[in-house]
Design a protein around this nucleic acid. Structure first.
Lengths: 336, 336
DNA sequence: TAAAAGGATGCAATCGATTGCATTGTTGGA
DNA sequence: TCCAACAATGCAATCGATTGCATCCTTTTA
């Protein structure tokens, strides 16, 4: 049942080395021998044992990915599934595999990462989260181990990373609102310690300035990523500030909460106040009114992450590299 | 930088065999030697090379999972992410890993599966889909290769599988509706060729009979899994049959389309007609009215799939085994 | 025609573990 | 005191590939 390179060699009357070279299509082997060996290979149904190969080549042809403990918060979002799809699709073409593990909590991530590395089962790691002071990144840098980060890291000139174009995305959203006549535009974002929030905020502010609108600190709020928080924050805001005509949020769930608050305060969407979301989840399509949102190309993000990391692994020179993936504004009925 | 078993052996003045036995905590080794070797191991920061281990042990300590081509249709649904989480969490405890690949289309799945098997990179396969005449299953059975199926397969006494309790779930839904006074309950399900639809339909019919209600063929419809189809089917149904007071669907998206049609036909939910969904996606919570739905415990399903497969691999006797995971009815405002 | 050159292939070491069997040293029973 | 029994460890083969170097044979060149 189990066919090894030795058996192929015997049947073909050559040495295992020759079979190995045929498999690589080495130029050292004559065409006649190649044909003969290939025939036996097909005949016996031989497939190389990748484990043995990995050992001999000192390379597992595998990347590692640790599901962050926070995926649980994010079941709303197809991001993770799409990202995985992008990664695996790219890897398959390049004869790489993906080894997946999951972390029980934040500290456990480092555990999982070092296990993967130490056991030599992966040639590189894809990191799905960036934290402010990121232990995982530090560990990987210290050990000089190949990895790519999804998101913009603090020391972005030191490593590989991919991100979507948050600044540009927010420029588009803001500009769109301004061009359709909005003047008092609020911004509901996540924690401003996060790079992702910072970038989006910059896009928002830049665009206001570009069109000569005031950046009002009272209109910029930090909220948790939940419907309830979106509701609460918007409610407070509308009680305090009376002339708001648009609310930009950085997540569809926040946007949904926000929409509820807008309605509860007696305003119409979008006639009185426009609302925008982010991530273009299924909610955006089916809420009423449907929600204008920003679509993230998670598949492409996964694909690019895999690509950058693989390039680095196969050509150790590229110590620093990055790729920025475009987003797409999905206009719907929650904006004028 | 790279520490092997040989170096540990040298430093500890023993042979590699002894180190290997210390790692297994073999009873053949004296406590003194164990202590000495373990100290050196910690000192040098030695970690076994799992690739080499796999080769020697003829076991990769890894399961394979192919993302079905159809995940793309299912980005709405956190099922996949949750399932993966369940699998990886279980595997980690048992020192197994998960190798992930994705299929471009239905035929490509078999490709991916045979690649994984032939390359000896996995000890078993988790199949996420069941089709009517399933090539993947046939291939794996023919090759006598360990695998577990998610869903109820046709020849369920021949293999390992896990599923959620579809029959019971539908019994609950139906009973609940009947007990709150509904008498003319329609059933919008997916293709009746699918086992999952069959089971759910049985639960529905059984419960009607149990309470002495007529099973009316006109009230049972097959639809595609989409909002549009849900709308269309419901619309047609309501035009034809006038006394319907509840609609059971087998997916939240279908339910949503159905709800829209109910409203468009001038009925109130739930006062005139109750509607139920399935899968308890994010939509169910946030639609208005919020949607009564059935929650599937995908994490548990993943966990059980991994468990059953691992048990089989480590104890080849259990050729047939299964596990049925309970569902949970989430009552919301779309039902009386 | 002999020597050099070069093409095609095989030998054997290697990757980093595991494990059956041989060996050594110690203990206890007769 | 001698030998059997057993505990502890080492030797060397093995898992299934890859690859540097040696070898052999053919062809080219002087």
């Amino acid at each position: 049942m189990k066919v090894t390179i030795k058996e192929v060699a015997q049947q073909a009357n050559v040495s295992p080395s020759t079979v190995s070279r045929v498999l690589k299509d080495s130029h050292m082997i004559s065409q006649a021998t190649k044909d003969k060996v290939n025939e036996i290979i097909n005949q016996l149904g031989y497939h190389p044992n990748e484990i043995a190969r990995s050992l001999a080549n000192q390379s597992s042809q595998t990347l590692g990915l640790v599901m962050p403990a926070s995926v649980e918060d994010n079941f709303v979002n197809p991001f993770f599934t799409q990202f995985l799809l992008g990664v695996t699709q790219y890897l398959e073409v390049h004869d790489y595999s993906l080894l997946l593990s999951s972390a029980k909590n934040e500290e456990d991530e480092l555990n999982q990462i070092s296990r993967a590395i130490n056991s030599k089962r992966v040639d590189g790691i894809i990191l799905l989260t960036v934290r402010e002071k990121d232990n995982n990144i530090n560990y990987l840098l210290e050990n000089n181990y190949p990895f790519v980060v999804v998101g913009t890291p603090a020391e972005k000139e030191k490593m590989l990373w991919v991100d979507n174009d948050n600044k540009k995305a927010m420029r588009e959203v803001t500009e769109n609102l301004i061009l359709s006549g909005h003047k008092r535009i609020a911004f509901l974002g996540g924690s401003q310690k996060l790079q992702v929030t910072k970038s989006r905020l910059i896009g928002y502010k830049e665009t206001l300035k570009k069109y000569g609108l005031e950046v009002d600190r009272n209109l910029i709020l930090e909220v948790q990523f939940s419907e309830e928080e979106g509701y609460r924050a918007t409610n407070d805001l509308l009680k305090k500030v009376k002339d708001i005509d648009a609310i930009i949020t950085t997540d569809d769930l926040i946007a949904y909460g926000s929409m509820r608050a807008v309605k509860d305060n007696g305003y119409l969407i979008p006639q009185d106040i426009s609302v925008t979301g982010f991530n273009n989840t299924i909610l955006a399509q089916y809420l009423s009114p449907s929600l204008t949102s920003v679509e993230i190309n998670a598949i492409e993000l996964g694909c690019q992450a895999a690509k950058i990391l693989l390039n680095h692994i196969n050509d150790n020179k590229l110590k620093n590299n990055f790729h920025i993936v475009d987003t797409k504004l999905m206009m719907r009925d929650s904006t004028k």
